[in-house]
């Protein structure tokens, strides 16, 4: 009997997407709390402390407040673009996590070109910033968007080149394969083979996610709040969620490509993956609360004059060694 059956792959994707949505939202709540605590301790104060024990429910309260706020569209703003931007900034998050190997079997979708998928859709974030800045009918937003586009486009190149060096060595863009090729111990990870690529990748990742000291698109002391000046409630909330999700994505990619993914010296599994991701996230919090912001021309100079040539040289040397050795 030709009974109607749902393909297993579809179930896998649906379950995966639901799990990813839960993961992203939960992560944002934990990360915001964590960042505020880290910031608090760097600044010699306790951080959130009132809502719940040690303030752990503070971000939940903040999220509820954000959801309850009125959505305001400034007069003269392009309604379609204005509301499209936050959604466009948030939606690609799901695609980033689809090929991500959280554990030995915890991969939603085994894609041979997983890394390419992530990098391709990472470009959409720029579009969201651009649309938000243009659609807001605010000059500060527009300046923020202009900065965001120039910055993202510039920093994407060394980021790609740094990852490409690893891809050259492993001959695969499949994230699971890249993890398989690495061992469990730290000296068997790709970071030992490609330390420069990791450094370049991490700096570019901070810039790509618009984190301080490269938070120029939203530089609040210069551009009030940059591209999201005019957003209120969940319009802002989605940008905020996307920022934190993007941080997880770049750290997850770094973990997978450079730090052996879910493999660890003992009890390999998802917890190693999460531990490494969170360690990198902590590293991303650190400069934000200790460094001043760079100026825009300095940011671009740093990219074009240092990161780009270094990444290119790294790639060339890698290719040369692969060919000869």
């Amino acid at each position: 009997m030709g009974s109607f059956s749902i393909p297993v792959e579809l179930i896998r994707i649906v379950v995966g997407v639901v799990a990813i949505a839960a993961f992203v939202a939960l992560n944002a709540i934990i990360l915001v709390y964590l960042e505020r605590k880290v910031a608090g301790h760097i600044q010699r104060r306790p951080g959130p402390f009132e809502v719940g024990p040690h303030g752990i429910l503070q971000t939940v309260a903040d999220a509820l407040k954000l959801v309850g706020k009125q959505l305001i569209k400034p007069a003269g703003a392009d309604a379609f673009l204005f509301w499209l931007a936050p959604v466009l900034g948030f939606l690609p998050i799901f695609l980033f996590f689809l090929p991500m190997p959280f554990g030995p079997v915890l991969t939603t979708l085994e894609v041979p070109l997983g890394l390419l998928l992530i990098l391709a859709f990472a470009g959409l974030n720029v579009l969201a910033i651009c649309i938000a800045g243009w659609g807001s009918n605010n000059k500060w937003s527009l300046l923020g968007a202009a900065r965001g586009v120039a910055q993202s486009v510039a920093y994407e190149i060394p980021l790609l080149l740094a990852l490409l060096a690893v891809v050259f060595m492993k001959g695969s863009m499949n994230l699971s394969k890249i993890i398989d090729s690495q061992g469990a111990w730290p000296w068997q990870w790709n970071i030992v083979l490609q330390p420069l690529a990791f450094l370049i990748y991490f700096i570019c990742a901070i810039a790509e996610t618009n984190r301080a000291p490269f938070d120029l698109p939203e530089a609040e002391s210069e551009l009030t709040a940059g591209f999201h000046t005019e957003y209120s409630g969940m319009g802002f909330g989605l940008f905020f969620l996307a920022e934190y999700a993007n941080m997880v994505v770049v750290c997850a990619v770094a973990t997978t490509v450079f730090l052996g993914g879910w493999k660890g010296p003992f009890f390999s599994g998802s917890w190693w993956f999460l531990a490494k991701v969170y360690l990198l996230l902590m590293l991303m919090f650190w400069p934000r609360w200790t460094y001043p912001r760079v100026r825009f021309d300095q940011l671009l100079n740093f990219n074009w004059k240092w990161l780009m040539p270094l990444a290119l040289a790294n790639l060339l040397v890698t290719a040369f060694i692969m060919k000869v050795g």
Partner: peptide, 8 residues
């Protein structure tokens, strides 16, 4: 320093 983007 706050103006220059350093919060702490």
């Amino acid at each position: 320093l706050l103006d220059l983007g350093a919060f702490t």
